[in-house]
Amino acid sequence: MGLFTVAEAKAELARLRPILDEIVVVRADMVELASGIPTELGGVPERKAAEARLNELMTAVQETGAELKGVAPLLVDFPADLDGVPVLLCWLEGDAELAWYHRADLGFAGRRRLP
Rank of each mutant, 00 (worst) to 15 (best):
R112Y: 09
G107E: 05
M30W: 13
V24L: 13
F108L: 15
E67R: 15
A52W: 00
L106G: 04
E51R: 09
T5P: 04
L98R: 10
G107S: 05
E97N: 04
W91I: 02
G94N: 03
N55G: 12
A34Y: 01
G65E: 11
E93P: 05
A49P: 00
Q62M: 15
S35E: 04
A14D: 15
A104D: 12
E93I: 00
D105C: 01
E32I: 13
L33E: 09
R53H: 04
W100L: 05
V25M: 07
E8S: 13
Q62G: 06
T59P: 00
A109N: 07
T59I: 11
P86A: 14
R47F: 14
D77W: 01
R111V: 01
L33R: 08
P18Q: 06
A14N: 11
I19T: 15
L114Q: 01
V44M: 05
M1I: 00
G94C: 08
K10S: 14
L54Q: 03
K10T: 07
A104N: 08
R27Y: 05
G107N: 02
E97L: 03
L74D: 01
R111H: 07
A14K: 14
A7L: 13
M58K: 15
L68A: 08
L82D: 03
D77I: 00
L3E: 09
L57T: 03
L82A: 07
L92W: 10
S35A: 14
T39C: 10
D21V: 00
W100M: 09
D21Q: 14
A11D: 08
A9W: 02
A80E: 04
D105E: 14
E56Y: 01
P45W: 13
